[in-house]
Design a protein around this nucleic acid. Sequence first.
DNA 1: TCCTCCATGGAAAACGTTTTCCTAGAACTA
DNA 2: TAGTTCTAGGAAAACGTTTTCCATGGAGGA
Lengths: 330, 330
Amino acid sequence: MITIKDVAKKAGVSVTTVSRVLNNSSHPISPETRQRVLEAVAELGFLPNAAARSLQLQETKTIGLMLPDIANPYYPGIVRGIEDVAHEEGYTIILCNTDRSRERTSKYLRVLREKRVDGIIFTGGGVVEDASHDRFFWREEIPTVVIGKHPADFPSVQIDNVGAAKRAVAHLIASGHRHIACITGPEASTTSRDRLKGYREALEEAGLDYHPGLVVTGDFSPAGGYGAVQRLLGQPGLKFTALFTHNDLMAVGALKALADHGLSVPWDVAVVGFDDIPLASYVLPRLTTVAVPVYDLGLTAMRLLRDLLQGREVAPVTTLTTELVVRESA
Amino acid sequence: MITIKDVAKKAGVSVTTVSRVLNNSSHPISPETRQRVLEAVAELGFLPNAAARSLQLQETKTIGLMLPDIANPYYPGIVRGIEDVAHEEGYTIILCNTDRSRERTSKYLRVLREKRVDGIIFTGGGVVEDASHDRFFWREEIPTVVIGKHPADFPSVQIDNVGAAKRAVAHLIASGHRHIACITGPEASTTSRDRLKGYREALEEAGLDYHPGLVVTGDFSPAGGYGAVQRLLGQPGLKFTALFTHNDLMAVGALKALADHGLSVPWDVAVVGFDDIPLASYVLPRLTTVAVPVYDLGLTAMRLLRDLLQGREVAPVTTLTTELVVRESA
DNA sequence: TCCTCCATGGAAAACGTTTTCCTAGAACTA
DNA sequence: TAGTTCTAGGAAAACGTTTTCCATGGAGGA
């Protein structure tokens, strides 16, 4: 590997000088010298060693991105948003799939700390039980911003889950539905809790009774949605004409389950999802859902982190707006 | 930040010794000393600085992953496969979205080289025009494995695109179809070229004529598939009862276009896609498609890279098998 | 003429590790 | 007993940068 010394030798100057021209330091350099250095750099194809640089500068221009699972279609949009501004700002991203597992999370956190990442963006950790764990692992203070909710008090970017859910359910009610089932995420998910809260608020506001039998818990996966619908349909006396699922993946599973049972959407049962993942508009019938601005979520998260790293003050929580996009399923 | 020196001081030993116990070097260390060091490490919460380590060891335990766009549902599965073995092997992944842009690609390549990544996994670069460009940027020899085809001769993991396409089209023919349209990817895509080749071979083998008017080019996106179908339908005398699209995303767009035209699938026109992205089995009608083992593609790519990094010989090309999964659309 | 200041450049320390030599004593071997 | 081999540990060089000082020579001011 070719180093700054080789460049210095070739240009007939000291490494100091090479470093200065490469970083266009304010220290004066004669035009001829600069020229010679640049030529040497080009001829040798020199690229500074980032490790050496980081060691000296105490910054890595790298950030860690922790999310549950990149294979979940909810996340790639976020990642793209993050990556686009990171790239623009000269940061590089280390991808960490946590699988929401405590072990994987802390193992990755350790690596990120060893690598001395400048910052961390964390998402999908809104799991109440893990509070102590999370706080524990972050004691070291590395600048962090969170997408969604998190027990520790990092700056966060979120959406108004309860409000959005409430509007979604209100839409169903406005369409005349009185018996609205609900498929939630895992019990521990704060996101799902908020969406459930919105569901209940919408019901209450419309003077409708909350019927616990109508809410079944899923796991945010299509299979979970499919199973949930089967459980719903399996209860003899249970009647419902609409379905609110806490994410699109489950909605898609639900759609299939409904079709398998010969129920047609939206005639027999209307369904509205949450997230507006890309596939939502391609499924048949096209899914009515709450559009979460995933790309923007990522974008602003990274911007916040950048501000944090530049020592600026950032808002403790910034809320992005969602939109109910009405398509064919409800 | 706390360093190895602090640990050494606290344990009353030299940094040499600390380093030795931390790396369980073969150099003998008395149990008591080891104990004292470990305690100091734990008490201080010391984590070695990876930059300093890399500088000395000349390895970063980091690999670069270059792909067109993580938001394309074809890729997350691959990434997961890569990440899982990387994590297991102690490697960390830097994510690079190239957008298939020459500029972004070379900018990222530069960063990866500055960061001295131990290796690179490249995918989605099978674009013939870029041969010189790619070769140029890789002249520096950093161990690389490629998923799919690539002009430079790196070890690669691929699938048999022509064979798979041929079998898919043969399936349509076996179902009695004689007029089979085809929606391709961009002209420059080698993947698409291979799939087109398979299409023609299947036709030829069945003694059917190849009709250029039946193949229209898309761009691997749903919108591209939608538009392609419209163009097909817009040609007055054109008749086709089946459609082979070069990826599922376009198939999904095609499904929608067909529905919008009042054509029912598979009765009026049968469609088969390619990739078997997760959504393929949730779209209605469920999509018949060629299942590409994306996770395994990533898995083996990373394993190959690991072998490469360990100095082992690896096969120049390893081909994974695909499977035609017949669902409802054809 | 002497002094000061500026333009230009370099030497060396520092960043935090790993590893190559060394050293010193203890335990063998002959 | 004398030499050799282990065991246990440390000093310092090296990895490749950036940056703080310091040096030199010429220009400008008195």
